[in-house]
Amino acid sequence: MPKQQEDFLITIVIASVFFVLIGIFLMILVFYFLRRQRKNRMEKEDMRNRFEQTLLNTQLEIQEHTFNYISQEIHDNIGQILSLVRINMNVLSEKFGEDNFDTTDELLGKAIRDLRNLSHNLNSNRLKEIGIVEGLRSLIIQLDKTEKYTTEFISPENALSFMNNDHCLILYRMVQEVIHNILKHANATHIVLEIKPKGNISYFVTITDNGKGFDMKALQGQNTGIGLQNIFSRAKLINATVKVNSKEGEGTSIIFEITNQKSIK
C-alpha cells in the first residue's frame, strides 16, 4: 500500500479516536461541573443550618437570662413580700381571732409555694445542681401535688449522664413545653414520664398522657403550633429526634431519642 494511503488511513483512525476522546472529555466536564455544584449546594445548606443553630442558641440564651431574672425577682421580691404579708396576717389573727384569717393564711401559703415552684422551674442553675433526672422528677411531682393528675416517673439511675448542662437544660425545657401542652389541651388525668435506655449510647424520654389526643395529619405542613415548633428546633440543637404518636380519643405519646454523640464518633 502506498505510504500516502497508509498515512491517510492512520489519520482516519486517529481522527476517529480523537472525536471519541472529545466525547469522553465532554462527559468528564459534565461530571466535574455537577460535582462542584452539588458540593457548593451542600456547603450552602451547611452554612444555613449553622446560622439557624447560632440564632436559636442566642434566642435560648436570651430566654434563659430572662427566666433567671424573673426567677430571682420572684424569689427576692414577690416571695419575700408575700411571706411578710403572711407574718402580718398571723399577727392580726392573734389580735382579732377571725376564722377568715385561716383561709387567707392557706391561700397565702399556696401562693408562696406556687411562686417558689415557679422560681425553681425558671431557674436554670437549680437544674445544674440537682441534675436532669431529678429535675424531670420534680416536674412530675409538682403535677402530682396539684391532685388533678396521677403521674408516674420511671427512670434508671444515672440516666442521661452523658449530657452536658446546656443540653440538659434544653431537654428540660422541651419536657416542660410538652407538659404545658398536656395541661393546656389534652384534658388528661394520667401522665407518665419514662426514661429508657436504648443500647449503650441512647435514651428514650417518653411523655405519655391519656388525654383526648389529636389527628396526626394536623402536624403536617404549616399547621404545627409554635410550642411544637420550638420542641423540634430545640431537639435539632441537641441532635435529638422527636416522634409524636397520637390518635383522637386515645391519648398522646411524645418520644425524644437522645444519643451520646461522643460514642458515635
Partner: peptide, 25 residues
C-alpha cells in the same frame, strides 16, 4: 455520543475508503 462522534470521519470518507485503490485496507 461516542458512537456517532467516533463514526463521523469513517462515514464521511466511506466512498473513499471503499474506492478501488483502498478497498482492502
Amino acid at each position: 455520543l461516542l458512537f456517532y462522534l467516533g463514526s463521523v470521519i469513517i462515514n464521511a470518507l466511506f466512498e473513499y475508503l471503499r474506492s478501488s485503490d483502498m478497498e482492502k485496507e
